[in-house]
Computed example of a mutant assay.
Amino acid sequence: MIPDHIDLPGSPWPILPPGVHLATLAEVETRFTSNSKRRVQFTGFIAALANLRGAGCRRAFLDGSFVTAKPRPGDYDACWDPTSVDRAFLDPVLLTFENNRAAQKAKYHGELFPSTIPADRAGTIFLDFFQVDRFTGAPKGIVAINLSADPMLQPTVTS
């Protein structure tokens, strides 16, 4: 369940309270796709997650201004657990970080990183880095999605 946003003095928009909040993609859609720009970003996020799931990824984490109360976020930020991922099935764009992740933004409308790689010079991994507000340094929340069980990512059968 995604909790209500909280105000954090020094942060420009209300944010999620600290913690990793497990949610379904339907809950993310209901909560965060309030306009056409957010809808495009969400559609790109679903496409990226479908590829990750197909490569064996079991969990992803959603962050960035997309999960704040900012009306028109520029994109979303996400990271994914690489533990069981078979890179042979992974879209190479998801491992392309050049040019400020331009290829990812063009294809998926957001930025995605393996959760266990360093996000800064101090060596903070993305999973931890995403849980710190960049404006204040205070703890903040992110959304976790179980890719293995989410109904939006389940293969469909047609007859």
Score class of each variant (00 low, 15 high):
residue 63 D to L: 11
residue 49 L to G: 05
residue 139 P to E: 01
residue 103 A to T: 15
residue 67 V to C: 03
residue 151 P to S: 11
residue 119 A to E: 14
residue 64 G to M: 14
residue 74 G to L: 04
residue 111 E to G: 06
residue 103 A to K: 12
residue 155 P to A: 10
residue 32 F to S: 07
residue 101 R to H: 12
residue 41 Q to C: 10
residue 84 S to C: 02
residue 108 Y to C: 05
residue 151 P to F: 09
residue 135 F to W: 09
residue 138 A to Y: 07
residue 37 K to F: 15
residue 118 P to A: 08
residue 115 S to M: 14
residue 41 Q to L: 11
residue 106 A to R: 14
residue 16 L to Y: 04
residue 39 R to Q: 11
residue 103 A to V: 10
residue 65 S to F: 14
residue 85 V to H: 00
residue 123 G to N: 03
residue 102 A to P: 06
residue 3 P to D: 01
residue 18 P to N: 06
residue 69 A to H: 07
residue 112 L to K: 00
residue 20 V to P: 04
residue 145 I to E: 00
residue 134 R to Q: 12
residue 104 Q to E: 08
residue 142 I to S: 00
residue 44 G to Y: 07
residue 116 T to S: 14
residue 33 T to W: 08
residue 111 E to D: 11
residue 3 P to W: 07
residue 82 P to F: 06
residue 121 R to A: 12
residue 151 P to G: 08
residue 20 V to H: 05
residue 154 Q to A: 13
residue 121 R to M: 09
residue 99 N to C: 11
residue 59 R to M: 14
residue 6 I to V: 15
residue 40 V to H: 12
residue 5 H to I: 00
residue 137 G to T: 08
residue 63 D to H: 15
residue 124 T to Y: 02
residue 121 R to E: 10
residue 137 G to N: 05
residue 47 A to E: 14
residue 129 F to C: 01
residue 78 A to Q: 07
residue 143 V to F: 04
residue 146 N to T: 01
residue 36 S to A: 13
residue 116 T to Y: 01
residue 14 P to D: 03
